[in-house]
Each structure stands twice: as structure tokens, then as C-alpha cells.
Write a protein that binds this DNA or RNA. Structure first.
Lengths: 344, 344
DNA sequence: CAATTATATGAAAACGTTTTCATAAATTCC
DNA sequence: GGAATTTATGAAAACGTTTTCATATAATTG
């Protein structure tokens, strides 16, 4: 038979007993309360270490109404951009003593809703969310704001409304500089593989695309504009459609790097010379873009900066409790940058 | 001035009052306790929904000593293998009603130790850990086992000891098949860029390498064996050293894909023909290996399988509480598979 | 129909902290 | 040197559940 004796965790009462003090004093000492003698604090800290005491966060959280935990909802952690952002967020929050519960919506709205419920039950002190592409109604986040829990949206954010903090890349500019770059390198017949217009991301990038085209007096060929889930397969299919026609594009802007890679592979197979016959530019500066041959020109989003801003904004809201105000918050925009490589 | 009125969360008492029932009954109804009338359950559920009730996990956890939360410690979530494993774990655990707190050690032992403290304070119901490369002493995990919290190690695992569940790839076989493959495709002068021998991973892969060499009566050139952190820069440096000599290797086995990519890029720059003059095989089947030209032969570790086994083992331990036994647990080994591409 | 058992509910304690309120001891002030 | 203030501590309530124990009602049994 196994020895099932479980070691009980020591509590504040054990320390109190050992030192002949009251639990109240122990609690204060551990929290560095000013009304505790230095000597007492030292005694308590020493005894706590000796007994291997560790605070029970549940008891503490229940009483003080603070969990020191932040919830994070993200479509998928394996997406390069998100992985980077998360890493920055986590390292940042840790410095302030906050834990992070990372949840993946798998880009499903239902899952996203369920996750808000779970995080609400966990009584997180704050929430960070990059929404699903299909999230147009953001009301499932209202509950957080209603009870004073700060919310920070990033990447895929609510379009107008909301009292939450909004941090986004400069997608309009991203679309604009990408398209302008294609034009400046000589393309006149430009295609755009974009994501669903339900998301602000692709609305903005598309607007940037159109703006650049207009500015250079180029017309947009609607048969060369795609709004679809940005998968490898979808991008291939789009390429197939475009290149079975008589007139084919000589420039392509894709709203993510996976699509750019798929397009490049398609071109390679069909013997279309890149960048000679077709120039390609992607979005996100995924590590794969610099490794593929030819390396793909893309738009850098600075996930690190995004992560830092998120932490900064959140810590601020947590401290000042300034989240709930009547003023509409102005979105914080992170600049983007063109990374020129071999496909343009 | 902002309207600071915060909406209070409704509690079980609010439901009780609304239905003229006792809190005890409400609790039982919500937890689907058998001794509650169907009608009562329905009433309670309906009222709970109407009041927007959500359980306070802290109160619940404090009383019942269950957090429904699992801790996960991982070197870095942005590593492809880990990102995949985590995704599988998270989706798996969610089905059983468990949350996941994901923590990154950044491959720092101190951080890893700190994280165990944090997760201990959070009173997680279970722990999953992929350790740091430098973790040779695993005693900071003892505290979990001592109080009956199941622990599952994967990838980088303790070598002998421990009452925890251990899930690992078949690294010996991985090293063996990779090396054998190089030999079978004609290499006789084979180099090995490996990780620090403090980790079981690289011990095993190295042993597999040596075994294959011995079996084919090939001698290992110690100048071509590296044990170092598996970074891009280190791999380049190793390549430089090897290829400044008169005799150069014609086969290279690297213990991760980043090193294989670095080696391939080095070869490209120096005009070394791959696979003609040098054959390369990596490890992990990182997406980049299939995208680079020539695509790199590598060893698939099936992160999905690993994730599934982890969930399975953990849920089992949680249910049966069979974690603490006197028998030493036998490590669960996940098979590996050679993915042949263009570099061999 | 009384006795037993099953079913459904309530009262109250418990979980381990934090925090309010009260109070004792030490210090400062006039 | 007594009053006022500051400093340090303790008692007890509170946080929102779950769970034990007790009990009332309904169903079943002989």
C-alpha cells in the first residue's frame, strides 16, 4: 500500500501559534504593513520560511477581492505574432506580481464567450483579449467592465464603442506602405489577398490598399481582391483563380505571411518568376519569411512593442482604477515598418 | 466625474433569497447533487442565469480544496514543439473543466524555482513541467508531490528518481535513426551538433548517435561533436570551426532545427553543396524546415501525441489520486519518425 | 398503519486569509 | 507628570462557497 500521508500546508495560524502572536499580526507582517515592529516582521518572515509557509491565494483573494491574476484570450498561441506578444506580456506582468491565465479561443466565437465566463468565475483582476475574426458583437466583454475589471484589447479590437483600452497596429498604414511599395517597384496590376471584413484588421489594411491605389491612379480589379480566412489552402486557391485568366497580376499583397508563402510556392511550381513577373509582400514578419527562398518582403508589427504597451496600460488601469471613465478611450497605435527582402 | 458604480456580482445568497431556499440547496443544485429535486434544480439554474450568477472560484476552491486549475511550466511558448503541445493540453484539459496557468521559465532555473512557488501559492490541482536545460536537481518539485499534487514531466525530464509521471520522446531512437539515415545515404564523416549534456534529451540523442556510428564501425571525431546551447549563432560558429580544417564532415546531425537551418545557410554561403557535399538532418520538424530550400530532413516528435498523453496521465492521476505510490513510475515514451526531405 | 427507508431541505461550521474595530503600550507634548 | 498622540497588537467579522449534521417530508415496506 502506498503511503498516502499528505503533507499539510502550514497556515498563518501555525506561524501565529509558533510565535505566540495573533493571526492578524502575522498577516500584517507578511504584507509589510507599517504598523508592525521591524523585529516582529523579521521573526514572522523567518518562521514562515522555516515552516515552508506559502500564502493560500484563494483565501487571500476571497477576502481581499484581488486575485493577482490576469486573463488572456487569444485565438491561438502558436501564431508567431501572438507568441511574441504573450511572452512579453507574461514577463512584464510577472514583475508586478501578476499571474497570467492564457486561453485560446481557436478562433471560435463560442469558445471565446465560454472563456469570458470562465475568467469571470476566476475573478481575474484584468483581461487582455485579441478577439476572434468573427467577433463583431463584443458584449460578452461588458461584464468585466461593469464590475470594474480593466480590459485591454489588442490586434483584433472592437471598432468603436467600449470603455476598454485598445492597442492596435497601424493597419491602415501597413496596407498603404505595402501597396505603395509594390507600385513604386513597378507593379500596376496588383492583387490583394485579405481576411474577412468583419475584422478591423482587414478593413484597415484594405482601406490602406485602396488608398495607395487611388493615389497612384490605379484601378482595383475586384477579381483580384479576396476576403477569406487566411489559410495556406485558401491562398493557393486564390492564386489558381487569378492565374488561370488571360490578364494576370504582377503584384500581390497578402494580409498574412502564410498566404504570401503559399503564393510564392504556387509561383515556384508554375514557373512564375518572383520578383520578375510577380512581386509579393506579406504581413507580420513571420520567421518563415526570412528563411524561404526568395525571402519575402513583409510588414513588421513589433509584437514586443505591442506587449509592452499592453502591460503598461493594464498596470496603469489596475493602479489608478481609471478604467471606467466616461471619456471614450483613444486607441493606442503601434507603428509598422516595411521589411524589404527579395520578393519585391 | 466618472460613474464609478460597480456592478456587484450576485452570489449564491441572492439566488437563495430570490427563491426562498437556503444557500446549501442552491449550492447543491448548481453542482448537480443527486439529493435535489429536478424542479428545484431547474428553478435554481433559471434564476442563476437570470441574475447572471457566476461561481466565485476562490470561495469554491477555498472550501473544497480544488482549484480546477493546472499549472504549466515551459521554457518558452514560442518554441514550435511547445506551442503545439500546449495547445493540445489546453484543449484537452478544458473538456474536463480545468484551467491552465501557463508560465515560461525562459530557460532560467531561478525563474523555474520561482514559478513553482507561485503555482504552489495558487494551489494548482496539478502541475505539468518541461524543465530548463540546466535543471539537474528537481527538488523544487517535491513540494507538489508531498502534498499530493500530481506532477507530469515532459520533454526535459528528471533522469531517475521522482514519483511523477514522465512523458518523453524516444530521443535515443531519434538520434539513432537520424544518424543511421545519414550513414545509409553514404556519409562516413559525420558531425553532431548537440545540446548540453545536463539534459536527458541530448544525452539520449547523443547515445543514439554513438550507437549508430558504432554499429556501422564508424569512428566519432570528437572535434565534430558539440555540446552547446542550440542557438543559430552557436551552430554557425560550430560550422565555421569544422569547415576551416582540411578534413571536413559530409554528414551533419543537429539536435534542433534552428541549428540545422543555420548550418544550411552557412553551407549556402560557402558554396558547399547540400546534399551533394554535405547532408544535414535536424530535429523537431519545425515548420521552417519544410519551407527552406532545400527542405531539411528532420525527426518528427509528434507534439500532439505528447500533449494527449499528458492530459490522459494527468486526468488519471487527478481522478484516482494514484500519483503518490511507492512504485517508481515507468516513463511513457512517444515514438519518433524520420521525415526525409531534400538535405539527405 | 406503524416502521423503515429514501428524498429533499436547512442551519451552521468550515476553508485561510484580510480588515475593521478596539485596546494596550510606548512616545510625545505642554 | 498627566493628556494626547502614535505605535503595535489582538478579537472577531467577513469574503462566498461547500459540506456535515440534523430534520422534515414523502415513499415504501411488512
Amino acid at each position: 500500500m502506498a503511503n498516502q500521508k499528505k503533507v499539510q500546508q502550514n497556515t498563518i495560524l501555525d506561524i501565529a501559534e509558533a510565535l505566540k502572536l495573533s493571526p492578524a499580526t502575522i498577516s500584517r507582517a507578511l504584507n509589510d504593513h507599517p504598523h508592525v515592529k521591524e523585529k516582529t516582521k523579521n521573526d514572522v518572515l523567518k518562521m514562515a520560511a522555516q515552516l515552508g509557509y506559502r500564502r493560500n491565494n484563494m483565501a487571500s483573494g476571497l477576502r481581499s477581492n484581488k486575485t493577482h491574476t490576469i486573463g488572456l484570450i487569444v485565438p491561438r498561441i502558436s501564431m508567431f505574432f501572438h507568441a511574441e506578444v504573450i511572452t512579453t506580456i507574461q514577463n512584464g506582468l510577472q514583475k508586478y506580481g501578476y499571474n497570467l491565465i492564457i486561453c485560446q479561443s481557436n478562433d471560435s466565437l463560442d469558445m471565446e464567450k465560454e472563456l469570458t465566463e470562465i475568467l469571470l468565475s476566476s475573478r481575474v483582476d484584468g483581461l487582455i483579449a485579441a478577439c476572434t475574426l468573427g467577433t463583431t458583437d463584443f458584449s460578452h466583454f461588458d461584464k468585466f467592465l461593469q464590475n470594474g475589471t480593466p480590459v485591454v484589447f489588442y490586434d483584433r479590437v472592437p471598432l468603436n464603442e467600449q470603455k476598454a483600452t485598445i492597442i492596435k497596429g497601424d493597419d491602415f498604414r501597413g496596407g498603404y506602405i505595402a501597396t505603395s511599395h509594390l507600385i513604386e517597384t513597378g507593379c500596376k496590376k496588383i492583387a490583394h489577398i485579405s481576411g474577412p471584413l468583419t475584422s478591423n484588421l482587414y478593413q484597415d489594411r484594405s482601406a490602406g490598399f485602396v488608398k495607395a491605389m487611388e493615389q497612384h491612379k490605379l484601378s482595383v480589379n475586384e477579381n483580384w481582391v479576396f476576403h477569406q480566412e487566411l489559410t495556406h489552402a485558401n491562398a493557393r486557391e486564390a492564386m489558381r483563380k487569378m492565374f488561370e485568366g488571360d490578364v494576370v497580376p504582377n503584384g500581390l499583397f497578402t494580409d498574412n505571411d502564410t498566404s504570401a508563402i503559399a503564393a510564392l510556392e504556387f509561383a515556384r511550381e508554375k514557373g512564375i518568376d518572383v520578383p520578375g513577373e510577380l512581386k509579393i509582400i506579406g504581413y507580420s514578419n513571420d520567421p518563415r519569411t526570412s528563411i524561404i527562398t526568395p525571402a519575402i518582403t513583409t510588414v513588421e508589427q513589433f509584437p514586443d512593442e505591442v506587449g509592452k504597451k499592453i502591460v503598461e496600460a493594464l498596470i496603469n488601469s489596475l493602479k489608478n482604477n481609471t478604467n471606467i471613465t466616461d471619456e471614450r478611450t483613444v486607441p493606442i497605435t503601434i507603428p509598422v515598418q516595411l521589411i524589404r527582402r527579395m520578393t519585391t
